[in-house]
Simulated assay, not measured.
Amino acid sequence: MKRLVRASFLTASLAILVGHASLAQAQTPLSADAWPQRPIRMVVPFPPGGGTDAVARALGQKLSSRLGTPVVIDNKPGASTIIGTEAVVRAEPDGYTLLVSGSTSYTVNPALRSKLPYDPARDLVAVATVARAPLVLVVNASSPYKDLHALISAAKAAPKSIHYATFGSGSGPHLAGALLEQAAGIRLQDVPYRGSSQSLMALMGGEIQLGIDTVAAAAPQIKAGKLRALAIAGKSRSSMLPRVPTVEELKLPDAVFDAWYAIAAPARTPQTVIRKLVAEVEAVTRDSALQEQMRAQGMEPVHLGPAATRAVIDDEIVRYRALAHRAQIVVE
């Protein structure tokens, strides 16, 4: 009996020790050396084939090589990026689920939508901005507007006579058009289309007078002589259209609209993992082959770290909220 009691006591003591060891291990922060040990999932809140998807796949391939683990692209489109973004917010904060998205997820939605199932500022931690996708203002090649100031003069003379294409209320082209109105003191008429192909066809067919689209979408028609580029809406010129001036160069700094792509992780992801991820993403974005790949797709490679990305997000949310109030932009 004594031996049985002693054996039971030893077994119980061992179980307690194992339990304490497991608890201690669970409470120990995940070290950078221990990450990653399994595939990383990059959630893209857009369908395959778009700009965001291209950025994610290019980054994922390079990161996979550096980290020695698969990086899987998980497309979760819908609800203006809300579905995919929420999937990342709700994911385990362990460094194995990341968000790759454009400014829609980080600034436009929180600025224009009164109800979101999450708070990007609270529920996501910025890792890096990796690329910009400049928008270009274009007109039909036969248009009488030889430059942006000619178009502005016509718009001042006849308010709302110039129709421009958007992808719906609160889309990038819509915000860029509203910023141009505000900066130039004019009134334009927005017309929603389903996407670039439809809006550019409408522009070439004379249905509308102004297009605001990505350089990647518009450049082929510009180079084919079917469209004329008036200005780049971003802060810097496009390497794909180097001769086209920016709105800032044309003395309209308040009309700047920057579309960009960034990586984020769920809040409460261990800082050790975030620091390693930041370092790896920085190394990848400085890769010359990746930069050339991005430029070939009409994007401008950049690298902004967590603090700089967070500052851009905070600034744009304030700016777009004010713009939506003045321009009466409502997004349900």
Rank of each mutant, 00 (worst) to 15 (best):
M1I: 04
L10S: 13
T11S: 15
A12V: 08
L14V: 09
V18H: 13
G19W: 09
Q25G: 15
Q27P: 05
Q27G: 01
W35E: 05
Q37W: 06
P39V: 01
I40M: 08
I40Y: 11
F46A: 09
P47W: 06
P47Y: 10
P48D: 11
G50V: 07
G50S: 10
A58E: 11
L59T: 09
G68M: 00
P70Y: 08
P77E: 11
I82D: 08
I82K: 00
I83R: 10
T85K: 00
R90W: 06
L98Q: 11
S101I: 10
S101K: 03
T107M: 07
V108D: 10
N109F: 01
L112H: 05
R113W: 13
K115H: 13
A121P: 03
A121D: 12
V125I: 13
V127M: 04
A133R: 00
L137K: 08
V138E: 01
V139A: 01
A141E: 14
S142A: 15
S143C: 06
A150E: 08
A155H: 04
P159Y: 12
S161A: 15
I162T: 01
Y164D: 05
A165K: 00
T166I: 02
H174F: 12
G177L: 05
Q182I: 06
V191M: 11
Y193Q: 07
S197E: 14
L200Y: 03
L203G: 04
M204Y: 14
M204K: 06
G205L: 12
I208G: 07
L210M: 05
G211C: 08
D213F: 10
A216Y: 05
A216K: 01
A217R: 00
A224T: 09
A224Q: 12
G225T: 10
A233T: 12
A233K: 01
G234Q: 12
G234I: 04
G234L: 06
G234W: 01
S239I: 05
L241W: 02
P242A: 09
R243Y: 13
R243K: 13
V244K: 04
E249C: 03
L252A: 06
L252H: 05
P253W: 01
F257A: 00
I263D: 11
A265H: 03
R268D: 15
Q271L: 10
T272Q: 14
V273C: 12
V273D: 13
R275S: 14
L277W: 13
A283M: 09
R286T: 08
L290Y: 14
Q291W: 02
Q291Y: 04
Q293R: 06
G298H: 02
M299I: 02
L304W: 10
V312R: 02
I313C: 03
R321G: 15
L323T: 06
L323Y: 10
A324T: 00
H325N: 14
A327L: 03
Q328I: 04
V330H: 13
E332D: 15
